[in-house]
Design a protein around this nucleic acid. Structure first.
Lengths: 346, 346
DNA sequence: TTTAGCACTCAATAACGTAGAGTGCTAACA
DNA sequence: TGTTAGCACTCTACGTTATTGAGTGCTAAA
């Protein structure tokens, strides 16, 4: 595309992103100093419209970028916009404060994401993957209650309260723990064979019903269908966007936001296994989101994809800024998780 | 209040709840068969307005209930509306399905609450209260990593990954675990004395840095500022209410919904330690919520209040229905939690 | 005490006119 | 051949005005 045409397109995109109003030739001539008259710009715009990069909402209004226009902008015209010193400082500070458990980190990340971009942030909780058993422990609580705890090699911990017969002693529980650890340690769900289980049951025949409950927890922990949880933040930022001044649109938007499953699919739909993905309007294959764009990226631990995060905004989004923020935060999150989890299966 | 006046008030409240339109005298005469003409009803309405139970949005419109009117309705006129068989069945089924951990139960309850009422549901996670240490365990993971697990007597479990010197052996970790269990078991934060800690440190002097990290986890677990989490559901139900067809209102609403802390305070502001509380309009002391009502109730385990749940809707809310649902679900939730948690401090 | 009749009020809706932003086209210009 | 000024034309947004209709309050009769 000729240089001047690109400049005009860039002007349209920038101005529309900034003002949310259709952009006219006069405005461009005045604000963007291309050194030519409005009439010339009009000619260029007519061409750009023919080629499908911009469109008119109605005869004799200004132009707005089409999806194709945004796409061209993102792919060829956009220049990465680094974070400011203050923003980097903010991120560093926030992460320092609360880095205790994974949930908190995810939460914090989402908060930062929505604060920095002023759009809606979505962060998927890490999907840990296949794990093996590291340790089982039965802790006597009181009367007829005990706590079973299972630790996985990937650092996940599950616990459950169980009811135990009055007759059982602390020693019994230690025995059970010990036998289970001996037999099952290091095994994944798949590698636990039927006769191994039989063996355990025969060895601990006296405690069948306790064993039942413990084995159930172990099984649950090992097969754990990771209940893809998602953190959502800054939903109400969307309402400040003029394109959502229509109640109907807000409604469809919010109803999507309440369907966690759907959101997860959309978030994961980015494809690529690494790097920032930009999806514009219809490229998100969710009919109700035609007027939105998403910028997503997976975060990793030791090179393995653990989950994704992303930003949802109107197609008229500040792409340059958001791409930088998403990129920066994914890396930061990856590093932080790496330090926390570690024990991921190699 | 005279009988007929009550009937008129009731008619106004019912009709306004159903239609969201100011109610005129003709409508009442037609729909509610009081056996008198519109003119008579007009007179009664004029009286009711003088007494402050109903009001006119503008001259020559119908009447709508005032806050006082709703209050009178809730206190004297409203008749409890039992749940239908289908609804009870739904609740039972949903609870059967997933009752594994506390988080899931809270989530389910919120979902049900919003589904059954078609308003916004809020459920506070249980606040467990002072706890004492039941068990500490250090589990070796791999290379220089270990997992510390602390179990409280109230059934809470905390875990954290720590870094350990290569030199440390599995036996060492067992020793540390054993010493800590011996010394600290059964103690609350308050009852751990300084010289007890010194004693531990001197006994395990060799492992000072490991001990540091373990003690930190124990301290965190025991002091655990219960991070009042809240489950929110059905926010978008609000948008179906005609009173929220105004974008500005939706905005203030949503911005409140994103402030968890604030929500917790509001939810807890109900006062009473048991039973369903109805707060109408300004009775919620949150300025932006003048046009909303809340119906809340605390849930308990063994008679001790653990948290609250509630429903937020427009002042024009189906009070009778919602009160029943809230009442029913609090009891159901209390029973379910009782079965799950048990070990609460007596 | 109740009711019919009637004048009056006021929001909501529709109908109309106007202003302004922006275009496309044409013709002149470099 | 590319650029620019001029101008007629288009279409939305907005403000003004008229119309409708629901609902009231008051009065006087039953």
């Amino acid at each position: 595309m000729e240089d001047r045409k690109q400049k005009v397109l860039l002007a349209v995109v920038h101005d529309y992103i900034a003002t949310a109003e259709p952009v006219g030739s006069r405005t461009i001539a005045k604000k963007y100093k291309l050194g030519v008259s409005p009439a010339t710009i009009r000619n260029e715009m007519a061409d750009l419209e023919d080629q499908g990069f911009i469109e008119q909402p109605y005869t004799s209004a200004g132009r707005i970028p089409s999806e194709l226009g945004y796409r061209y902008y993102v792919d060829f015209l956009m220049r990465k916009q680094e974070l400011s010193k203050e923003e980097e400082e903010l991120i560093r500070r926030e992460y320092r404060a609360k880095v205790r458990d994974v949930g908190q980190v995810i939460h914090k990340t989402g908060l930062l994401l929505s604060q920095l971009t002023h759009y809606t942030a979505m962060v998927l909780t890490p999907r840990i993957g296949i794990s093996s058993l590291k340790h089982v422990q039965i802790v006597y609580m009181h009367q007829s209650r005990a706590m079973v705890i299972a630790v996985m090699d990937n650092g996940a911990v599950q616990h459950r309260m169980i009811e135990i017969p009055e007759s059982i002693t602390a020693l019994d529980m230690e025995t059970i723990s010990r036998v289970l650890n001996d037999k099952l340690q290091g095994l994944t769900m798949k590698s636990i064979k039927l006769n191994l289980i039989k063996e355990i049951y025969s060895e601990l025949a006296r405690h069948k019903n306790v064993l039942d409950m413990v084995m159930e927890l172990i099984q649950d922990s090992l097969t754990l269908e990771v209940e893809d949880k998602i953190y959502l933040g800054g939903v109400f930022n969307m309402l400040n966007q003029p394109e959502f001044h229509n109640v109907e649109k807000i409604k469809t938007m919010l109803s999507i936001m309440e369907q966690e499953k759907l959101l997860c699919n959309i978030l994961e739909g980015g494809g690529e296994d690494e790097g920032v993905t930009v999806r514009i309007g219809g490229e998100i294959d969710q009919w109700d989101m035609k007027e939105c764009s998403m910028i997503t990226a997976p975060y990793t631990v030791r090179g393995r994809k653990m989950g994704s995060l992303g930003v949802l905004g109107p197609t008229r989004m500040e792409y340059a800024k958001v791409v930088s923020v998403v990129d920066y935060l994914t890396k930061y999150l990856s590093r932080t998780l790496e330090r926390m989890i570690q024990g991921v299966r190699k």
